[in-house]
Design a protein around this nucleic acid. Structure first.
Lengths: 185, 185
DNA sequence: ATTAAACAACCAACCAGTTAGTTAGGCCCA
DNA sequence: TGGGCCTAACTAACTGGTTGGTTGTTTAAT
């Protein structure tokens, strides 16, 4: 095992950054802590990612890429898509937190191109589905996408005061799928 | 106009705190900035609210109280309830941000009693509605509440990369109401 | 095959500016 | 005149970011 390897170090920094940013957000994250978890010196973060914000962007982009890759999209079977979104965030709740923090803390001058492109391709696919009459035309494509996203992640947007009342993952998943089916009918 | 008035000062601190915390979260908020906006000395915040977290809790509680008061709840007409939720957060987007930050940043040892109480009363009301067959029994009460909440605030949970595609408030409101009706049918 | 130069990866220590929180005392009204 | 309201000034600790130098790795001429 080599002692010096830029790619390996970058990857470890990114992983540590995702963890720290997901837990505490941009303002709450501590660069020193990320460096420590990554097992390297703080100066490396600055060498590779410029500054704290640059590191967040890199970490979030990496996280999103993974997500898009794993979840995919399918206008022909939107309930299944919603199920995959639900499953992904059930398995990786930190990724949802990360994206929430992105919404809250990033001043959105230039949107991430990767996301813009994916958004557009999904809208297109939905609209094709509508023309082919396999997708309801009662909502606009954006509305539909937004509703499905919100439903699939509905549990994580609840206030935490429900606590004990919160049903288990299986029940919640069923509710999500049923809700999406009803929206589409 | 009197120059000294504890209640008035407290209220101005609270208002300034809501603004600052909504914009930047707990970690990102600056106590000095809150004091400046409130037009008083920083020491007053500490005299009245103990510390930064205490101030956040007070600000958030005040915000929630206002919200619960204004929006209310009605198990007999859930689409209308969803509409009111939508309208409230359309008019006060900062309140939604505040509650998101509460979810993300607050270590939930003791939940806010006010919220617990309201949650419970809503669940009870929903269950009564189910027994009276005016509310669908296809979902559990918690699931239903969670879904409606998510749908009513769905637009604010979207990633910001949609930008230009985002429809206007009227269209979005219609989508929310229709979605809730479909869920309930 | 050696070796020396060139380069890339890495780090300990430091810095200037910022932050939450405190203190000691002044001011105002009853 | 006394107690609650208010402030300027302060501090100890922390934070993002930098610097100057060290060490491992590759390259290429000998």
């Amino acid at each position: 095992m080599q002692q010096r390897n830029a790619d390996r170090t970058k990857a470890r920094i990114l992983a540590a950054a995702i963890e720290e940013f997901a837990a505490r957000g941009i303002a709450g994250a501590r660069v020193d802590r990320i460096a420590e978890v990554a097992g390297c010196n703080k100066a490396m973060l600055y060498a590779y990612f410029g500054n704290k914000d640059g590191l967040f962007d890199a970490a979030f982009s990496a996280s999103v890429e993974q997500y898009l890759d794993e979840v995919g999209f399918d206008a022909d079977d939107l309930p299944a898509y919603a199920g995959r979104v639900f499953d992904y965030f059930e398995a990786h709740p930190d990724r949802l937190r990360l994206s929430t923090w992105y919404r809250l803390e990033r001043p959105h001058g230039q949107p991430l191109e990767a996301i813009v492109a994916v958004n557009q391709s999904r809208l297109d696919e939905l609209q094709r589905g509508m023309r082919r009459r396999v997708v309801t035309r009662q909502f606009s494509a954006v509305s539909l996408l937004s509703l499905i996203q919100a439903i699939a992640t509905s549990w994580s947007s609840m206030n935490p005061e429900y606590g004990a009342d919160e049903p288990n993952a299986t029940v919640r998943r069923r509710a999500v799928l049923m809700a999406v089916q009803k929206i589409l009918s």
